[in-house]
Nucleic acid binder design. Structure first.
Length: 468
DNA sequence: TGAAATGTTGGGGCG
DNA sequence: ACGCCCCAACATTTC
């Protein structure tokens, strides 16, 4: 009997999964498959932290499928080839997947769809991972919105997102399962050295955890979200980002859970964060390469510096600015960083050190468990000032002041920089003023004078604009 | 989803 | 009592 292939990608969930429901609805045996495609050009390779997450998430998805009498088939190679071969092998009459939005993946998926069309196999990508399709939210002139508030206002006037689809209760298996790779052999987890200990201590990938996390956040933290979301020492954010990046939970599920609990200023603020994600995907969809091209072309002339040594200090959390270093160490240890701190470290790299935002974007891409092809480049361009609806370039964060404002008693710094733990809240964000002085082998002196760096950055901006 | 520089105001010390 | 100065405290402008 012919089968239906359900091709899992960044949608590693059973609930609210339109491709899975389409496969189920075909009435034929369902063959769930995940393809590790590291060969198709134009499709961005996952970073190291994302590979770790992917390993565990695939294992969780396989376990969930097995509890429904199914399983997850693993294949590796160029997806065009692999999916085509698999469909042939198991005499598939239909292939379903959920849509991606980056140009490289879209091109690949279009080729796959056309190839199946020629073979008479039904093939379709479905809407699953956004609340609003990028082509549904267009300005009066038909282009993409370039300002977030206008974009989100337009989204809110559209028909509200539909209710999420239920997870299937069972899946019919084929008579004979096609062969599958061994997950461990893919080598997605780090070895020699195994630096993922902090990731494992912090996170449990998988759909079940994602749903628990959402419920816990709504129960415990949403009410204080507006006040707490900027305080990195508080667990006041949802921490759903990696689950969302891998599609272990859908934006529609989050939307529904938030809105059914009633309307409040806090829930609006939280939904707006989903809105920023939608905005980022709209930019990704309409741009040819969001992670490489400045959205504002005047930044093509920006005089970035090389800065190998300062870059190294930034990556390692040894800049001498506690809030920056705490963030970079949190990132390295847990694969995640609080959003307020992401803005601070990004401002420091691009404005104090004058290092190209793409360098920072790539470091985040490699180290973040929530690395997202739309959010990550948009966020960096936003901070750098080169993006759509970006912070004006002259908004330069003062890392000491930001620390004092958002980590006023220094708890966040103490957690990640134990060598400063004995400093009082009054000086912990300016350890260079401590008396007695901190020996530099314990904690470094600032690698740059912020006041002078600010002047230099403003100068560089004038050069780029041609007004200097 | 800034920070610094500059301007204004008003209370209080003091001759 | 009065004018003068200082300087927080706040507001506005500039980058």
């Amino acid at each position: 009997m012919p089968a239906s292939i359900v091709w899992f990608r960044n949608d590693l969930r059973l609930a609210d999964n339109p491709a899975l429901i389409a496969g189920l609805g075909s009435g034929r045996p369902v063959i769930p498959v995940f393809v590790l495609d590291e060969e198709t050009s134009g499709v961005r390779l996952r970073g190291a932290a994302s590979r770790w997450w992917l390993h565990h998430s695939l294992r969780a998805l396989d376990a969930s499928l097995r509890s429904l009498g199914s399983r997850l088939i693993l294949r590796r190679g160029a997806a065009e080839q692999v999916i085509g071969d698999l469909a042939h092998e198991c005499d598939a009459s239909a292939v379903y997947w959920n849509r991606a939005y980056d140009p490289g993946t879209r091109d690949r998926d279009t080729r796959i769809e056309q190839a199946f069309d020629r073979r008479g196999v039904a093939a379709a990508g479905l809407k699953a991972n956004l609340l609003f399709e990028p082509w549904e939210v267009a300005t009066k002139s038909g282009g993409p919105y370039k300002v977030f508030t206008a974009f989100w206002r337009a989204c809110r006037t559209m028909q509200a997102p539909a209710a999420p689809l239920p997870a299937p209760r069972s899946l019919s298996a084929p008579g004979l399962w096609p062969s599958s790779d061994n997950l461990a052999a893919w080598g997605l987890r780090p070895t020699a050295p195994d630096w993922a200990g902090g990731l494992g201590a912090t996170w449990t990938p998988g759909e079940a955890t994602a749903i628990t996390r959402l419920t816990d956040f709504l129960d415990d933290a949403l009410a204080h979200y507006r006040r707490g979301r900027d305080m990195p020492s508080m667990k006041a954010t949802s921490r759903l980002s990696p689950h969302l990046a891998f599609g272990e939970i859908s934006p529609r599920q989050i939307w529904r859970a938030v809105t059914t609990r009633g309307h409040s200023a806090a829930s609006e603020k939280f939904l707006a964060e989903l809105g920023w994600r939608e905005f980022a995907y709209s930019l990704l969809f309409h741009s040819d390469d969001l992670a490489r091209h400045n959205f504002r072309p005047e930044f093509d002339r920006f005089p970035w510096l090389d800065g190998q040594e300062t870059l190294k200090a930034w990556r390692r959390g040894r800049t001498g600015f506690p809030i920056v270093d705490a963030g970079m160490r949190e990132l390295w240890t847990t694969g995640w960083m609080h959003n307020r701190v992401r803005m601070i470290v990004a401002s420091f790299l691009t404005k104090d050190l004058l290092i190209d935002w793409r360098i920072g974007e790539r470091w985040f891409w490699d180290t973040l468990v929530d690395a997202d092809p739309a959010n990550n480049p948009m966020g960096w361009q936003w901070v750098a000032g080169s993006g759509a609806d970006a912070a004006p370039y002259f908004r330069i964060f003062n890392p000491a002041l930001q620390g004092e404002k958002f980590d006023s008693n220094g708890d966040y710094v103490r957690r990640w920089i134990p060598e400063l733990a004995s400093l009082p809240g009054k000086t912990i964000h300016r350890p260079w003023t401590a008396d007695p002085a901190i020996p530099p082998e314990i904690y470094p002196a600032p690698i740059i004078d912020h006041k002078a760096a600010r002047q230099r950055a403003l100068q560089a901006f004038h050069v780029a604009k041609g007004t200097g």
